[in-house]
Amino acid sequence: MKATLTIAKREFKSYFDSPLAYVVICLGLALLGVFFFFVHGFWQVDRASMTMLFSYAAWGLGTLIVPVITMRLLADEKRTGTLEMLITLPVKDSEVILGKYLGALGLVSVLLLATALYPILMFKWPWHLGPLDTGPVLAGYLGLLLYSAAAVAIGLMISSLTESQVVAFFVTFIVLLVMHKVADIGEFAPGRLGEIARAVSFEANLTNFARGLIDTRNVIYFLSITGLCLVMAFRSLESRKWS
């Protein structure tokens, strides 16, 4: 367990050793602001609602931030050979996977926490733009966290399958995009197929959270994706032994 945390800590810190973490956080916040206030038109809606913030945050995380953060996790270590150094330390393969996962999820969480600046600045201090219902905001953040957990696990799994960061980025990007929008495609699909598409879509599973509703089905959905992808990443890492 201690090894897991050591790896997670190193991974998390290494993001801040390069400009990546700063760029991701600053750009993420700026883009979120632009979309929330100008594209969505927060002022025109004239309601103290953060629902759309969560929708945009999920979009940004899925399509840009998570792929950028997870692309190098294992792919780069495989390419440079540092993985050999890491794995031949007294550490289990599962601890390597979990450590890397927690390190990346840590950075995403920091970004999520940073977005909390928006509701706090707008509704608590220094401005009071209206009475904000805190329940849905907290539920929305829980949803985003679960969503990030699943997305990072998917990115880690894909990163474990290739030695190229670029490939890892694009595959993760496409998978997350499809997972996000599969419900929209499902609109056109007939009957049962459409239902399945809605059930596995990220967006559909996030809407409840943004409205303040914590449904166990949605929670289990995100947690199962996380678990499944972590196990697959572990297997993929282990497969080096037999190839």
């Binding site: 190193r10 050793d17 390069s18 050979g81 540092t82 050999e84 150094m85 031949t88």
Partner: peptide, 15 residues
């Protein structure tokens, strides 16, 4: 029990 140095000493450059 082992100390191991892989070929070309792959280390984390940013550390």
């Amino acid at each position: 029990k082992l100390g191991y140095l892989p070929q070309r000493a792959p280390l984390y450059g940013e550390m």
